[in-house]
C-alpha cells in the first residue's frame, strides 16, 4: 500500500473504533464494563497518554531529544492555563510565543 493509502486506512480504522466504543457503551449491559478496575483504567488512560504526548511533542525531534522554542511555548501555555485562559487562547498563544522566540 502507498503511504497515503495507509494513512487513509488508519483514519478509517480510528473512526470505526471510536464509533464502536461509543455505541458499545450505550449498548452493553452495565456489568460488562462497570468493573471497578476497568473504570479506574479508563480514567487513567487519558491522563497517562496526554502527558506522554506532551513530552514527545515538545521534546522529540525524530529520535533525538531537543530543547527549543517549543518548550518556551509550553511554558507559556502553563502560565495561560494558571490564568484560566480559554482553550483557543492557550493553543494559539503558545504558537505565537514559540514563533516569536524563533524570530529573536
Amino acid at each position: 500500500m502507498s503511504e497515503q493509502a495507509v494513512l487513509w486506512a488508519a483514519i478509517l480504522v480510528s473512526g470505526v473504533a471510536s464509533y464502536a466504543l461509543k455505541l458499545a457503551g450505550l449498548s452493553v449491559p452495565e456489568r460488562v464494563l462497570a468493573h471497578p478496575l476497568a473504570t479506574r483504567v479508563a480514567a487513567l488512560i487519558p491522563v497517562a497518554l496526554l502527558a506522554a504526548l506532551i513530552a514527545v511533542q515538545v521534546l522529540g525531534e525524530g529520535r533525538a531529544l531537543v530543547l527549543d522554542a517549543r518548550v518556551v511555548g509550553l511554558a507559556a501555555a502553563v502560565v495561560m492555563l494558571l490564568l484560566r485562559a480559554p482553550f483557543l487562547v492557550v493553543v494559539f498563544g503558545a504558537a505565537a510565543v514559540a514563533a516569536l522566540v524563533r524570530l529573536v
Binding site: 496526554l50 506532551i54 502553563v78 492557550v90 493553543v91 503558545a94 514559540a98 516569536l100
Partner: peptide, 14 residues
C-alpha cells in the same frame, strides 16, 4: 509556532 501549539493543546486537555 504551530508545532509548539500541539503540545499546548494536549496540555489544555490534560
Amino acid at each position: 509556532g504551530l508545532d509548539a501549539a500541539v503540545g499546548a493543546a494536549f496540555l489544555a486537555l490534560l
